[in-house]
Design a protein around this nucleic acid. Sequence first.
DNA 1: CAATAGATAGTAACACTGCCTAACTATTGA
DNA 2: TCAATAGTTAGGCAGTGTTACTATCTATTG
Lengths: 397, 397
Amino acid sequence: MRTNGPPDQPVPSGSSHLLRTINERAALYHLLEHDTLTRVELRKLTGLAKPTASQVMLRLFESGLAVTLGRTTARQVGPKAEVYSVNADYAFAAAVTLREPDGVTVAIADLKGHERVSSTRRIDFTAVSPDRAVQDMLWHTAEDAGIDRDLISVVHLAVPGAYDAENDEIGYADIPGAEDLRLRAAVEEFTGCAVTVHNDVNAATVAERRNPAVSGGLVLLWLGREGIGTGIDLSHGLVVGARGAAGELGYVPVFPDRTGPDDPTYQDWIGAPAVMELGREHGVEGANAAAVVAAAVKRGAAGFLEAYADRVAGALHLLACLFDPPRLVLGGEIARAGGETLVEHVRRRSGALGDLVLPSAVYGDAVAIGVLDLAYADLKGRVLDAALEGREGRSGS
Amino acid sequence: MRTNGPPDQPVPSGSSHLLRTINERAALYHLLEHDTLTRVELRKLTGLAKPTASQVMLRLFESGLAVTLGRTTARQVGPKAEVYSVNADYAFAAAVTLREPDGVTVAIADLKGHERVSSTRRIDFTAVSPDRAVQDMLWHTAEDAGIDRDLISVVHLAVPGAYDAENDEIGYADIPGAEDLRLRAAVEEFTGCAVTVHNDVNAATVAERRNPAVSGGLVLLWLGREGIGTGIDLSHGLVVGARGAAGELGYVPVFPDRTGPDDPTYQDWIGAPAVMELGREHGVEGANAAAVVAAAVKRGAAGFLEAYADRVAGALHLLACLFDPPRLVLGGEIARAGGETLVEHVRRRSGALGDLVLPSAVYGDAVAIGVLDLAYADLKGRVLDAALEGREGRSGS
DNA sequence: CAATAGATAGTAACACTGCCTAACTATTGA
DNA sequence: TCAATAGTTAGGCAGTGTTACTATCTATTG
């Protein structure tokens, strides 16, 4: 089944050096996957011979990528085996989330994938430019945790808005001063390492992948405090679009025969404005959209819930027809406020599709978690690729 | 930028055997890419040493994968170099297209990607079951072209309807007797080779990739004689959906507040029914939808064209917001009848999106061409993978 | 027109690298 | 002390790279 793969990938060639590299890479891969391994386990996983496994590990120690964590506690006859592990402090991945009005959140994970620090600071983006704020927060957070700046190898950022990777531009940004900013270039400049920028909803979608129930892929309908959007994470990976604007449901006109600037878009139809209006109609009150939905759930305002669930079900139907995802997940502040009650209402109004609908399974800050997952995956990939550095097999044409 | 890739792929390990395999594979890859190569060219592409290149080629000859096509015509000093090539007759890829009322189309390509035969026969699917019809056509076509059945390694089929690969089921099929048929299993049974089934619009989308202007990916809006649909071919490859139903725009209600069975879907809104109705309204006549559009173009029926282009532009806007593709292509019989004139009208009504809109660049049978491309790509992949057979590197856990 | 120089295609011999097998040493518990 | 396990050492094998060599062909030159 190579029907879906990319057209063609170059095929490398090489000599003995390539072989060594391949085996080193394989060992490192398994160390990254398994957290701790004895050499016997490593041999089973890679199929390498005993002396070869020793040599490979030796080279991984010398390069600082692996460490030994002592020896197995003796439960068997014979000498105790050494326990190998990836050197968690070899490199770090930083995740930065930019939001209004929350400011900047920074989290840093080590090479073993453990979150080592996380901190948030409120920022007034009209006073401090976003790139400057990122820089400050990044260095301070690293310093507080005792992490060497130079060991941060990748930085991933989540921004509200469509990020066009090709032109390094943020479209539809909700943050002052972000429109004209080359954010990746700016952050790359002062960090000197690889920077990737994501849309916030896409990041939240990645976080959902932690839920095994959606491991085959999902489409996330994000009903956020500010705006709505869609994250598409299929078996191939994230669908971000040519200009980073995939899933921008909020800008789709609800009625295709009414596409003027004043006619309703899905943002108006299922986003915060719709919740407030439906709340007024059905006599449910709250300070903001999430509060309205929470109030409706609390006092069982069936009229409101049914009306709103109807609209959400319509949007899900649209997404299901176009993406045919294994799962449809409801996320964002409004969806969270609605909880299982809202999901149940939506399910009932979604017909056969109802079985696919799930509430978000992420506790906490989905966007920040997702960016950290993206940053860590990137770090792993780069470390594995770097193991090939120099003696790389010549890549075919 | 590994933000979009699949989460993780196992990393192989191995010994000298793997190395030989890798280099064989690399040579074969370049032979497949370049059609004919001298050994010097091969050396430049792979970076292998002279004797090694000789040995690799020797093994490829012995396995029957490569042949020598004589020697270079002497234009240089020194002996004439041998010209190597893939053995075109080593294996074949068959592409089958099922349609109503056209019947069955079969095309067969050799390992060099050349179409060797193509033939179509009208079939009455109420009298002959689809799998039976495929079998007959496949064997007869192969025989007529003098191709050994056993050398056909892959068969790809295109069917109208959503093909669910997991359950081997065709949903929404327009062919009698296709709903309850396990088509892949049936065809695999009698061919004994790998069978893959595709949706017809997806196949047509793949055919568009032959146009360099859309090589970065595209979304195809298919306005067919029978139905409409969407093909999504992004940088990752085809988006087919969990149940093969991605891109089924025809089943999306046009107005989310009117989702009853009698309320209009996009099929009614931009498909053949819409064309006929708009034709009546604007006094444009024709035997079918394509004829109506052709007539409108011929006599410059601006009213009709504007009204229809408006609706199509609406659908494109929806697709653009959700998929953000590099290009939007209009295909199918209705779009073809409208030609550049229709595209121009749609462009004018699409605002900034207009620049992305293109007419189909495929001459001839887009679906059949697309399946053949898919089948050939699959064949290439399998032949390359088979070069690893037996002495494959152990794939990591 | 023939002989020769020069360049290129391909092969042969040998060295290098890396992995595997088998034998060996060291360590631990019964 | 024996048996089982962890790890090392020694020797062999497979595959590639380098260098040197032969064979073939064109172009130049006498």
